[in-house]
Design a protein around this nucleic acid. Sequence first.
DNA 1: TTGCGATCCATTTTT
DNA 2: TGGATCGCAA
Length: 696
Amino acid sequence: MNIDKLNDSQRKAVEYKGKHLLVLAGAGTGKTHTIISRAAYLIANGVDGNRIQILSFTRKSASEIVERVNSMFRDSKDAKQLNGSTFHAWCMNIIKTNPRVFKVSDYSVIDRDDQLSIFKLICGRNSKIIEETRLTAATLLDTYSFARNTRKNVSDTVRLKFLNNSSDENANKEIERIKPYLVSVFTNYEAKKRERKYLDYDDILDVVSAGLKNNKEARNYITSQYDHILVDEMQDTNPLQWELLSSFQENCCLFCVGDDAQSIYAFRGADFSNVHKFGERVLDSETFRLEDNYRSTQEILDLSNWLLKQSPLNYNKQLRATRGTGEMPVIMNFENEWREAEWVSCDILENYTKDGLGYEDHLVLVRSAFAGRAVEHFFLEKKIPYRVFGGVGLMASAHIRDVASALRIVANIFDEIAWMRYLTLWSKIGDQTASKLINELLDLSNIDDCIELLKTKDLKNPDLIKTLSAIKYFNNNPSEAIRVALSVMENQLSYIYKENWSQKRKPDFEILIKLAAKHSSINEFITEYVLDPQLNESYLKNDEIKEKVTISTVHSAKGLESKICYVINVSVGAFPSKRSMDEGGDAVEEERRVLYVALTRAKDELYVTRIIDTIQDYDLSVTNLQKQRKELSDIDSNEIHVSTNIAEYIPITYFLNELPGELVINQISDRTKNALSSKIYTGAVIAENEFGIDLS
DNA sequence: TTGCGATCCATTTTT
DNA sequence: TGGATCGCAA
């Protein structure tokens, strides 16, 4: 193995001989390289590949790590056995391989959409209370999941999420008021899950974690199957994941890599005290730091460092560029998102034709998946090839879920959500009819009985039954099952999606069929795609065309890097978002880290674009302060979330306020100048005597 | 009860 | 922009 490419601190970590290690690695300091080298080092020193488990946040990064380790050992079988997966996929695997410990191996995994359907069903019955508390099913679901991931009880969760963590009398009263409702919804939800044999994402971790914690024998048996657990993106782990990991402390060496400044998943319970408290919580552990940045030029890091330094939190981070200096980061100002997107696409095209850069050297980062649409529009128009990371994946699209629902029924006939979706898909069957049918169906014990029952009903469309019985024969060949289901359902689907069935939707199934071919049972395939709806499509499309610009949400961009990077819509009200300002300090700080992650993706050139309302906003220092005062008074007048600790954070209403001019080049085009100045009429005013009825 | 059309609505981030 | 929800006709 070649570890010459490691610097001293990296090498120290890679060759660590003690038990547990935390590596605090700033952006671009070779975090992934270190974890890959660690795995390779262990294997080269005789550790069995299958006794090493790499855990990461997305499957994309997990499989990339495994691949790169493999490529270092062309002919070693040890490396081939290396395990790499997400926490969820790993736990699912533990559940499946130890059915006698966990007793849930025949359950169906449900994703957020399915959870939401159940919550809606439960809330539907007492929607009046929803009006009083203004809690939607989606909010309730998020609250539930947050509580489970953070291991908090309902009261504390409500206090934290809705009451700014205040414990005064008003807050306590409010908790007393809404808690019974939450408790009843959550109880219903958990009962429903048990009844229908569902596991949601949180269950997967919880079941394993609780099993290991409470059953010493099982813990010993399972944890002794591994020698080393390598955790990537440690700052994104939540208390539940920590609980799970801590069960492995005794028998395994933990090697955790993370960066607190890149923690951007607090909204789903990530807690960077998993990083901060590592030393005190884990006996027999050490902490190393990596601070040399290999990715970016110093100018890009100066801007990133500056951003972090404005925070009231002390990240104690100052990245140093080993590459030296380069181009200054540029701030581009535009009058609206279309001009902004147009400029990005023109700039990329120019680089491509003039400077000989490839499309793949460009990365466009957006705050929300939604925000990329203007850019996509111009890419299509200018025929710039691109791929999108983040947001709603293929697997979440309606037509795929339709066909998947048929497969899910055959895999688990108690899957009420799947029945509901599948039955109502057909004409003349709505919620009412479907509910009645489902009531009867759920009493049956196998798919054949279900089909028989459906045959006795006077259903308008025989394809409904045909599809199910066709799939049944391909239980062990998911790919064929999809093909056959599609052919029977196509009439109905093309009717439902008449506008874009054959051009847009139908081709998606080719991908699905290809994906399914890797699996040997329907159930296995379903579980797989529920656990990872994103990656699969991306790696299939990946090798189709390498020459592509990447559009990504910042959250999906961890680990990505690019020569040229556009961070778009870094505007007032977007960074931080209004929403996070309402929520308070922690949310605002998380937004800051989101921007930090975005800025540190750039290797050579960084363009921060933003939309401004008036020509004055173009100025970096002065007018934004005025703007900030205005925002501040707006917040005060809303006064929904008045609390003491929010006050000290309020002055941070726009991250680029008071950005020192020497850190960036601030640019505006004449076109934008004109567009903005024409917004405000500064000419002569019509006098009163110039209009009115002619009295003569 | 279903299905269509119109209107309104809001719009983070993801395993 | 399109997604979800509401109201009305068949």
